[in-house]
Design a protein around this nucleic acid. Structure first.
Length: 318
DNA sequence: CGTGTTTGACCGGCGC
DNA sequence: GCGCCGGTCAAACACG
């Protein structure tokens, strides 16, 4: 997948090798890619958000954010917002505590779907229906699926999407929320992607889970929307109980707390990062379930990181 | 009985 | 305008 619309950049040692901003157009739109090569990144950028703000991606942040276990898993992530910018990073072995890992982060600010094949080609930018229930335009129950109250005239806009790829045997990765499958349909490059919706009422977050067309061992998970509620307390594994209340309540911004926010709140976040904490250690103490998951599946899922990428990062204004 | 999955049909955007 | 395609709906079904 690394060669389908994504630019790869490898992270070796303590800092990225250099960020390269690339730009290209896709059907009128301009894509901005960032390639990292050596030396321009300050290793002190330890927070995911900071990295994003600085137009750089920090592997460690991602590793921590997703609880990536470098020892044998791979996590590629991507964020979509309003424009097509992606970033992908691969992480070499050594610096991850001698383990081999790979993290590819792709930032995609467009409404497109970088999900399938991690944005390999598609990205047709077809912003389709939203999570909103579409209704049959008044007219009453027209046909079968007619009663989807869709406001005519009002164009629905896509929620920011965040996608990442993991190597896992299981499709459904535990991320602390409960999901209900609402569809599955074969699409190009993805035999049968599954569509899930958060079961919490009024929560419109959706996610799509699919196996990589090229690498069946790879699972591509795309999250869309933002949870407007804390983690379900009755959740299997009770992940919610592990998070301090402050992490479960909406942030000052009025948004729910997402992994990246959690990261920002981690007291020793920077410290751990600088000290090359063992893989998965990030959540070892506070997020045991995740760690456990890492150990068992080596592919934790910390989705819902959407909306974490500032537009400044996603798109370079001319 | 409540909850979640399966699955074919439908919807609507987009490209030609 | 038409057809393709991705995404969604919702009835039927499965399961505890």
């Amino acid at each position: 997948m690394s060669d389908h619309g994504f630019r790869d950049f490898y992270y070796h040692g303590g800092a990225f090798n250099n960020i390269d901003h690339d730009q290209q157009s896709y059907g009128g739109e301009t894509d901005h890619m960032y390639r990292v090569s050596s030396s321009s990144i300050d290793p002190s950028y330890m927070s995911f958000t900071d990295c994003l703000h600085s137009t750089s991606m920090d592997y460690g942040s991602l590793e921590k954010a997703f609880g990536l276990s470098p020892s044998s898993s791979e996590v590629f992530s991507s964020v979509e917002g309003g424009n097509r910018s992606m970033m992908k990073q691969h992480v070499g072995a050594d610096e991850l505590g001698g383990n081999t890992g790979e993290v590819t982060a792709t930032l995609n600010s467009s409404v497109s779907s970088s999900s399938s094949e991690a944005g390999c080609e598609e990205d047709s930018d077809k912003s389709k229906k939203d999570g909103q229930p579409k209704g049959s335009d008044d007219g009453g129950e027209s046909s079968k699926k007619g009663n989807k109250a869709k406001m005519k005239g009002e164009k629905k806009q896509r929620e920011p999407r965040f996608a990442f790829v993991t190597k896992s045997e299981v499709d459904q990765l535990e991320d602390g929320y409960r999901w209900r499958k609402y569809g599955q349909k074969a699409v190009k490059n993805s035999p049968y992607p599954s569509y899930y919706r958060c079961t919490t009422q009024k929560c419109t977050v959706k996610k799509r889970v699919e196996r990589s067309f090229q690498d069946p061992s790879t699972v591509i998970t795309t999250y869309e929307g933002q949870h407007n509620h804390p983690l379900p307390t009755t959740l299997r594994g009770s992940a919610a109980g592990l998070f301090p209340p402050s992490m479960l309540t909406p942030s000052p911004l009025g948004r729910p707390s997402f992994p990246h926010e959690l990261l920002m709140q981690m007291p020793n976040y920077h410290h751990q990062m600088n000290n090359q904490a063992p893989a998965g250690s990030m959540f070892a103490e506070n997020f045991s379930p995740f760690q456990q998951y890492v150990h068992q599946h080596q592919v934790p899922d910390y989705g819902l990181l959407q909306d974490m990428v500032p537009s400044t990062f996603l798109k370079h204004e001319p």
